[in-house]
Simulated assay, not measured.
Amino acid sequence: MSGMWDDLVGQSAAIETMRQAATAAHDRTSAPGAMTHSWLITGPPGSGRSNLAYAFAAALLGDGPDSDPATIRQVVARTHPDLAVLSTEKVIISIDEVRTLVTSSQYSPSVSNYRVMVIEDADRMTERTSNLLLKALEEPPPRTVWILCAPSDADLLPTIRSRVRTVRLRIPEAEDVADLLVARDGVERGVALAAAREAQSHIGMARRLAKNPDARERRAETLRLALGLRSVPSAVEAAARLVELAKADAESTSAERDAAEREQLLRTLGIEPGGTIPPALRSQVKALEDDQKRRSTRSLRDGIDRILLDYLSLYRDILLRQLGAEVPLMNSSVSTELEAAALAGTAAHTLEVMDAVAAARRRIEANVPPALALEAMLVSAARKGAA
């Protein structure tokens, strides 16, 4: 079990809270009030929300905070009979998915003391879907524990927030993320630290940047596009290129997985590789393809949002240089260009461009076509001259 806790970087307070709860769950004489049946884990992307949720789940399904290896393996593989998980890679969690999970939550544990229900990305539920979940949170069976994960408690309905105990994760220090990459993945220290800073301490993204040269080059090109803005036409061209880069990044992460899922489905259906799919089975293959398309849509939106977060870090570096602050750069690989950009603009203009980046994120979240939102943002940056 220690390995699961160790994957959480810089979250000692949250870990202690969950370990105390797990101890209380198995020992009624300890830490009164430490355990409850509905939890919400919040924190920025990459802070380890789901890692903490599954470490806590393993502790509940096993014998306590330091659970047995067999339980840990089942939780990691999501195969434990008393663990139910709702993890979507679509834009919205459907009401039918939550209805199925709520029905499952009424079952009694089969091999453990508890039945644990985990919802990742609980912020992707609509109000109607949230109200369905609310009924389950209000009167859970005595041996059922709900664990929700979301970026912020503000992303959930007030009625949901009032039924859960919230554990907040913080953004880990870049040095701590680098230490994890060095110890766990064997990454060279300098590369690990640069990746951690560029990823803004997002552990998964830092690992990808540290180990994937193509991902590093795509990110570097996005920065060069922003730093090279000189006119409105160049901003329009840059917006189109950003969408292309986000698509390439999404495809690089999903292509291999999509192929493996299709191969697994065909094998399950008894179809040889390259064989003809019988008409009676085509609907199942079509359903998989539809799911993969929806996942691709979310991956593209997530990729564009990462680009916008990178831009916020870029303009943050420019702003700090304009203000004369002597702090480490997040984007040290383009330090020369950053210094030039800082001299060419003003702090007021840079703040206005950062506002434009934040507005682009809100517009995309509200389903404005990404190309239009990016174009408006970059045109604003070109006109302000902050780049």
Results as ranks from 00 to 15, higher is better:
residue 254 S to W: 09
residue 105 S to G: 12
residue 150 A to D: 10
residue 176 D to I: 05
residue 107 Y to C: 05
residue 282 R to C: 08
residue 81 P to K: 05
residue 301 R to S: 12
residue 168 R to P: 10
residue 299 S to T: 13
residue 305 D to E: 15
residue 253 T to F: 07
residue 129 T to M: 00
residue 42 T to D: 04
residue 29 T to Q: 10
residue 85 V to F: 08
residue 351 L to M: 13
residue 3 G to L: 07
residue 366 A to F: 06
residue 155 D to T: 10
residue 96 D to C: 05
residue 260 A to D: 12
residue 330 M to Q: 14
residue 123 D to K: 04
residue 76 V to D: 08
residue 111 V to C: 08
residue 255 A to S: 15
residue 113 N to T: 13
residue 325 A to Y: 06
residue 239 A to T: 07
residue 159 T to C: 07
residue 354 M to S: 10
residue 251 E to I: 02
residue 288 L to N: 09
residue 137 L to T: 11
residue 373 A to Q: 02
residue 141 P to M: 00
residue 171 I to G: 00
residue 330 M to F: 15
residue 140 P to G: 02
residue 206 A to V: 10
residue 25 A to S: 11
residue 271 I to G: 07
residue 67 S to T: 15
residue 41 I to Q: 09
residue 365 E to C: 00
residue 251 E to K: 08
residue 345 G to H: 02
residue 313 S to W: 06
residue 241 R to G: 04
residue 95 I to W: 02
residue 28 R to Q: 14
residue 123 D to V: 03
residue 156 L to N: 09
residue 7 D to W: 07
residue 382 A to E: 11
residue 153 D to F: 01
residue 248 A to V: 06
residue 136 A to P: 09
residue 18 M to Q: 05
residue 291 D to N: 12
residue 100 T to W: 00
residue 333 S to K: 11
residue 47 S to G: 10
residue 101 L to G: 04
residue 8 L to S: 12
residue 173 E to H: 13
residue 3 G to N: 09
residue 338 L to N: 03
residue 387 A to L: 13
residue 22 A to P: 08
residue 224 R to E: 14
residue 164 V to E: 03
residue 147 I to G: 00
residue 54 Y to V: 10
residue 322 Q to Y: 03
residue 91 V to T: 14
residue 106 Q to G: 14
residue 204 G to R: 10
residue 127 E to V: 15
residue 141 P to W: 00
residue 341 A to Q: 06
residue 85 V to P: 08
residue 49 R to A: 07
residue 345 G to L: 02
residue 159 T to A: 10
residue 70 A to C: 08
residue 114 Y to Q: 01
residue 162 S to R: 02
residue 378 L to T: 05
residue 203 I to F: 05
residue 270 G to P: 08
residue 95 I to T: 11
residue 284 Q to W: 00
residue 301 R to W: 05
residue 193 L to K: 06
residue 291 D to F: 04
residue 281 L to R: 14
residue 327 V to A: 15
residue 258 D to E: 15
residue 252 S to W: 01
residue 30 S to P: 05
residue 334 V to E: 01
residue 69 P to R: 01
residue 55 A to V: 12
